[in-house]
Write a protein that binds this DNA or RNA. Structure first.
Length: 272
DNA sequence: AAAACTACCTGAGTGC
DNA sequence: TGCACTCAGGTAGTTT
């Protein structure tokens, strides 16, 4: 499920469930995800501790406790669901949490590209420290983006958007959708995007992300069910996955190309 | 140094 | 029905 709006939706769904609650039980069903799960550190740092805040940076969620934070990433296929007990309900359930009074959360990730890590209080973490500004949380100015792209010799605007070191949290879908909305050709070199275009791009990007978060908001109701991945599909995609379908603006068939081994969808008439 | 590529996994979908 | 194949929303680490 996870692109930035889905992660934000998860953060919002988790907050009322676990904020100011103690973690009563913790169980890991495998040793590794993308990285080894630091099981004993997480037990030591989290058990019987009260959750003081839940924050997000890019696609990472931080669940804060007095001595440190649980860093959660969902990778490409991860989900968190609420369940009636500590008993795994689904294949690929890797971690089980019980919060007071009777809140059970299951971490499920078929491809194991996600991670669960422990960050001691006061420490940074290499996964977070290199991250660019968050397109929703922080105000990014067009001027700053223009400056950041100035020295990119060859990077396309699409690859620029997808590089978390430059802007955090923009995945393949939203990169394609934002470029379509801003009418920018995905292969255009990032350094050639002028301030006026950056202004439009940032504005449509925020708008799309916000709309998608709102769509995701409807999943809060479904959050108790086993499927936590709803809202994602409720946001209407204009170009992503629409190869050969008519462009919603001009009816030209949408093209699919490959950039850095990832599919890019765009309209060759509307995007220049 | 920057940019492109590979690897990590399982599952869904397609064509034969 | 089953097999072989392609592709998938992320990103750290390696290679060019």
């Amino acid at each position: 499920m996870p692109e930035l709006p889905e992660v934000e939706t998860l953060k919002r769904a988790l907050t009322p469930l676990v904020l100011n609650k103690r973690l009563l039980e913790l169980n890991f069903l495998r040793k590794n995800l993308r990285f080894p799960i630091p099981s004993s550190e997480l037990h030591k740092g989290l058990l019987n501790q009260k959750i003081s805040a839940i924050t997000r940076k890019g696609k990472y969620i931080l669940i804060h406790a007095p001595d440190g934070s649980l860093l959660v990433h969902l990778g490409m296929s991860g989900r968190v669901t609420q369940a009636p007990s500590m008993k795994p309900m689904e294949k690929h359930t890797h971690a089980l949490f019980k919060f007071e009074p009777n809140i059970y959360l299951h971490y499920i990730d078929p491809r194991c590209f996600g991670c669960l890590l422990w960050i001691p209080k006061g420490n940074g973490h290499p996964l977070l420290d290199g991250l660019g500004p968050d397109p929703i949380d922080q105000e990014i100015t067009a001027q700053e983006m223009k400056m950041a792209a100035k020295n990119c010799s060859t990077v396309s605007i699409k690859n620029f958007l997808m590089d978390a070191k430059r802007i955090a949290g923009i995945g393949n879908i939203y990169a394609c959708e934002a470029l379509f909305a801003a009418r920018i050709y995905p292969k255009k070199p990032a350094r050639k995007i002028n301030v006026a275009q950056w202004t439009i791009l940032l504005s449509v990007l925020r708008e799309i992300l916000q709309k998608s978060i709102v769509a995701g908001g409807t999943t809060l109701r479904d959050f108790h069910s086993t499927d936590g991945s709803q809202g994602y599909y409720k946001f209407k995609l204009a170009v992503y996955g629409k190869e050969n379908k008519p462009c919603p603006i001009c009816n030209e068939p949408i093209k699919r190309i490959v950039q850095s081994a990832r599919s890019t969808f765009y309209c060759k008439v509307c995007q220049k």
